[in-house]
């Protein structure tokens, strides 16, 4: 069992049901498990048939649920900055700053960043209240952005630190005959803050690329588009060194389901072969198409029994 298990894939393939079932079977084995949804459009509550929100909720023995609320997280962050500002600077500057914070709050990417922060926080505190986390991620594009963020921003922030250090070095040269200036230059909180941020990204990158602790399972349907998208996503994760686990093929039509569905089954058969060929490196699990939607503990438990190979 890995400490961090991700379920990803194209929209509507059944990621949430798989993540929920997987977390249930982990909890049943006595592992204190947290199941987290990073999708802005949460559906974890619907799968468990219990309201889950931005706070950890006990769902069963050893199992907690959480739906990350990007907006609330961003608000918390900006409020804490505003708090610091108020007893630091003059009133006119505070107005400027408030404007600046509003711009950043609206800018694209801020919600992702907020989710990402929460995401790091959860991974850091694993081992305290819970031992394993199962992530129900958003559809492929959003998740790939989220997971590759540390690699990209790490480089950027490194560049900023270098620039600041260069400026400081020059100032130190200029301050050689100016004691007052030299006194001001003793420490730089900006470099400290940037370094702390960089270290956080580095930690996230380390956790995400460590195959000992992390695994990313894909959920797909036996359909052309689903396979193609998964294939691209696998390539992308490989590029950033995130370990890919197994494939969960959901909604496979069982035998003897009537003439129309039997025909559909034949086409699925072809795609199932393709999936086994393309993604031969990990286990492939097949889940049958069910008569009814998957909802509530009982049905999730049935599915978790079928997912033994990946979780």
């Amino acid at each position: 069992m890995k400490r961090f298990t991700f379920f990803g894939g194209k929209g509507g393939t059944g990621k949430t049901s798989c993540a929920a079932s997987c977390s249930l079977s982990m909890a049943a084995r006595g592992v204190r498990t947290l199941v987290v949804s990073t999708d802005p459009a949460h559906s974890l509550s619907d799968a468990f048939n219990t309201p889950i929100g931005n706070r950890m909720v006990l769902l069963e023995r050893n199992l907690w649920g959480l739906e990350i609320d990007a907006e609330a997280e961003a608000k918390k962050y900006t409020d804490s900055i505003m708090e610091k500002m108020l007893h630091l600077v003059s009133a006119t500057i505070v107005d400027e700053i408030r404007r600046q914070i509003e711009i950043a709050y609206m800018s694209p990417g801020s919600e992702e960043a907020a989710v990402f922060d929460k995401f790091i926080e959860l991974m850091e505190s694993a081992g305290k209240d819970y031992d394993a986390i199962v992530f129900d991620t958003a559809p492929t594009g959003h998740t790939l952005r989220l997971l590759t963020l540390p690699g990209i921003l790490g480089v950027w922030i490194e560049h900023l630190i270098e620039k600041r250090q260069k400026a400081r070095k020059l100032m130190e040269v200029a301050a050689r005959y100016d004691r007052e200036l030299a006194e001001q230059l003793k420490e730089d909180p900006v470099i400290e803050a940037l370094s702390a941020r960089r270290d956080k990204f580095e930690l996230a990158r380390k956790i995400l690329t460590d195959s000992e602790t992390t695994v990313f399972h894909f959920v797909l349907n036996p359909e052309k588009l689903s396979i193609l998208e998964t294939d691209r996503a696998v390539g992308m994760l490989g590029k950033y060194g995130i370990p890919v686990g197994g494939m969960v093929v959901n909604k496979v039509i069982p035998k003897g389901a009537g003439p129309f569905l039997d025909k559909k089954r034949l086409s699925q058969e072809k795609y199932l072969c393709e999936i086994r060929e393309r993604f031969a490196s990990g286990p492939v699990v097949e889940l049958p198409m069910l008569e009814d939607d998957v909802q509530g503990m009982e049905q999730l438990r049935i599915i978790s029994g079928l997912m033994g190979a990946v979780c």
């Binding site: 962050y77 900055i81 630091l88 006119t92 500057i93 800018s107 990417g109 801020s110 950027w156």
Partner: peptide, 25 residues
């Protein structure tokens, strides 16, 4: 982004504001 140039991580730059407020104006 203060003067209209988009920044990929303006969200993370916010935490530097209290530290650099005096330099900003």
């Amino acid at each position: 982004d203060f003067i209209g140039i988009p920044n990929p991580m303006s969200y993370y730059m916010l935490e530097l504001l209290p530290l650099m407020a005096d330099e900003l104006v």
